[in-house]
Design a protein around this nucleic acid. Sequence first.
DNA 1: TTTTAACTTGAGCAGTCGCTCAAAATCAAA
DNA 2: TTTGATTTTGAGCGACTGCTCAAGTTAAAA
Lengths: 195, 195
Amino acid sequence: MVNKIRFERDNVIRVASQLFWQKGFYATSTRDLQEAVNMRPGSIYAAFGSKEGLYSESLKDYTVQMKSQIEGFLSSADSVLGGLRAFVENVVIETKDCCPSAICMLVKANSEFSEKHSRLYTLSVELAAEFESYLTQLFEQAINNGELNNTLTGLEYARFFQVQFTGLRGYFNRPNVDKLAQPMINQMFMLMKTL
Amino acid sequence: MVNKIRFERDNVIRVASQLFWQKGFYATSTRDLQEAVNMRPGSIYAAFGSKEGLYSESLKDYTVQMKSQIEGFLSSADSVLGGLRAFVENVVIETKDCCPSAICMLVKANSEFSEKHSRLYTLSVELAAEFESYLTQLFEQAINNGELNNTLTGLEYARFFQVQFTGLRGYFNRPNVDKLAQPMINQMFMLMKTL
DNA sequence: TTTTAACTTGAGCAGTCGCTCAAAATCAAA
DNA sequence: TTTGATTTTGAGCGACTGCTCAAGTTAAAA
């Protein structure tokens, strides 16, 4: 029973997450959310406290989902870089049109909350830092595997990856540039071995 | 007299632009704007028609300002790449804390308007395309000057520049990474000559 | 079957939103 | 001055915002 509730709670968060990711925090009204998750305001506020509370859970869940997506690609790839490349290609090319937004929800959050002392801005920074150290581990593994040379640290590769990935997703958040995606991803991974 | 009005109109747009850039379209209320530009609602609506109208003018003005800022750096640099580098350094390092946002207003607009058929999303795409062809001209000039080799076209360099620049600005929209800015900009321009 | 605690419902509150428009103010031309 | 066109003012409209809470529903425990 406890598991049942947990399951449904996770489901609600996932649905809310999609809506928040697509429309952003401010442009998503509580009535939009009520309809999307099929709950009345009282239930939502009993479960999450506030719109901000539900957004917090949504953003946390987003990063969990993203990590587990990467894990998936890693486990069916023969190298760390191969897995990351498959992930990037999937995000930028394949799921481009069946995704709430081309832009990473973390990046969107980071740019939406201009008040640098607000809870949600702070949360977005924390989650981004967490994700960066996750990536750092992966790149350290790639260095150890000999996939990348060790002139850069894992953290430096992680930073490079984030800048490229964010830049690419921003660039492809517009129409009529689909054919450029694959060559630009190739360039990104080529450059990474150049560093 | 006509010039007087135009001057004040431009001034209003510039002030509104700063506020919209900082807070985004949805989080900026018409009352915020009224206070910032010191105009009563009737005057604003007589001059700009709607909140959307004022935002349109603000976004257009932003790209004009950005271009003229680049022109400034170009005219006091001894090469196209030198001018662009000075511009990037100025944006990412020097004006980091005295700027409405670390993120380019065009990029913010592009990510904020999820409705792909809305006026404002379309406008952001158009202005981005315009800016890309402006950059393309600059990079063609750089190729002709022998600053860059011609294995890539001006357009391809322009795309690379945008991805890097957007990626960097996104990355530095968080605290405690200031010391990384200069080395990462150096890396960006080093890579550009590698391509 | 009754009790009790947990959860859900939805009408509706106080406040804010984008925006309007009649009245007042302004100013150049007559 | 007077006139008439233009601009500014701000009270306030209807819609929507995030959110509350008394009343109703549910289901496990007694």
